[in-house]
Computed example of a mutant assay.
Amino acid sequence: MAGQRDGLMKDPGTEGYRAGFAILVGRPNAGKSTLTNALLGQKVAITSNKPQTTRHTIRGILHRPDAQLVLVDTPGLHRPRTLLGQRLNDLVAATLSEVDAIGFCLPANEALGPGDRFIAQQLAMVGRKPIIAVVTKTDLVGREQLGEKLLAVAAMGQEVLGGEGFREIVPVSGKDGFQIRSLEDVLISYMPPSPPLYPEGELTDEPESVMVAELIREAALEGVRDELPHSLAVVVEEMLPREGRSEDNPLLDVRVHLFVERPSQKAIIIGKGGSRLKEVGTRARKGIEALLGTKVYLDLHVKVAKDWQRDPKQLGRLGF
């Protein structure tokens, strides 16, 4: 990241312009993906009420006349129980060292717990990065409960981070838009002077195949039992234009494998007579067509990869 910025520093005509990277961290299901989408005004990160939905560091790019903010939405930091969990934590740690500011997401509707303290301790070791506490999901609490939460967050910041604690504390709601633009201003204020890092209009630097896989995962996780989110991986095998279609009526063939760890999970994904897999395909296809701007034929196959979360070779094949 730094090298990319260094190579652009001599670009003329950018006086007063700021550009840089901000990471959103927090324990699983702290509202990071919803917040990312709200800041960008468009969907780039999948959202789910299931913990550990995010598997990749999706980068969303916010463009303003005076600034460019590259948002890094990460998997939730947690005490890992599997090799996959450890690799997701390692991914977050590596990203923390490369960004210009850190937004620590703490849901307003949940008490501070050991998980939050664990993350604060990890952030305290990062070095001299500005850490902004972002109190999310304020739409779920009343004014008194929010006030208590803000005081508790401030106290934890002083205790764990030392000194004055968090640089700033910003309550927001990604769902109803409360203080989203204020948070945008705060994050941009910590970005360094720099010309733009990405072309105007570019929304994310993630490959299309990764975005497609994430949309399918989101659709597959809708309404399923608790054990499935951690066991589901999605791999896009190919995305090819359908031969023989005219330029004004293109069709993209997308072939996808959904991997689970046990036959019982395969049965959950497929549903009776394939009904649930068909629903997943219909739901995902709408999002994929909106993302790619073209009609899509989605070919989904469910496979069992036994205990893949704990198998280094299988993790590598599945992109972790």
Rank of each mutant, 00 (worst) to 15 (best):
T74M: 10
V224W: 01
G7A: 15
L151C: 00
H257G: 00
D139A: 02
M156D: 04
E200A: 10
N249P: 00
P207A: 01
A219V: 01
S189I: 09
V135E: 09
A2N: 13
G127T: 12
R128N: 15
I58G: 09
P199I: 08
M125C: 12
T14C: 14
A152C: 00
M191N: 11
K149L: 01
E168R: 14
D311N: 15
L197S: 02
A133V: 07
D66T: 14
L62G: 03
A101M: 02
D311I: 09
Q86E: 15
F118D: 09
E144N: 08
V126C: 05
E200C: 06
G147V: 09
K295Y: 05
D185N: 14
A133R: 06
P28G: 07
D205K: 05
D116Q: 03
S173E: 01
W308F: 14
R217Y: 06
P241G: 10
V170H: 03
L91N: 13
R59G: 08
R55K: 12
A108D: 02
I131G: 09
P80C: 11
G113F: 04
G26L: 04
P229T: 10
L197T: 03
R18N: 10
G147H: 07
Q52W: 10
V99W: 07
V256R: 08
N29T: 02
P51R: 08
E238K: 15
A284Q: 09
F259A: 15
A38W: 04
V280L: 01
P130M: 05
L251D: 06
S231W: 00
R225V: 11
K313E: 15
A101I: 13
I131Q: 12
V172Y: 03
L24T: 02
V126R: 01
E202L: 15
L183E: 13
A284D: 13
T57R: 15
A101G: 08
T282G: 00
L140S: 14
V280M: 03
A2C: 01
L291G: 11
T53E: 05
A133C: 03
Q86N: 14
F21L: 14
G157V: 06
I188G: 01
P171V: 06
I131K: 11
L298Q: 06
I180T: 07
D90F: 08
L197H: 04
G174C: 08
G115H: 05
S275F: 00
Q309G: 00
E206P: 00
L298F: 03
F118Y: 15
M125W: 10
E148M: 07
E227H: 11
A120D: 10
V236T: 10
V72E: 00
F104M: 15
P193F: 04
G223M: 01
Q314Y: 07
E243Y: 05
R143P: 12
G244T: 07
G41Q: 11
G165V: 08
A108W: 02
G13A: 13
I169S: 01
A111I: 00
V153F: 02
L161S: 04
I23L: 15
G113C: 13
R64N: 07
I132G: 06
L62F: 04
G244P: 06
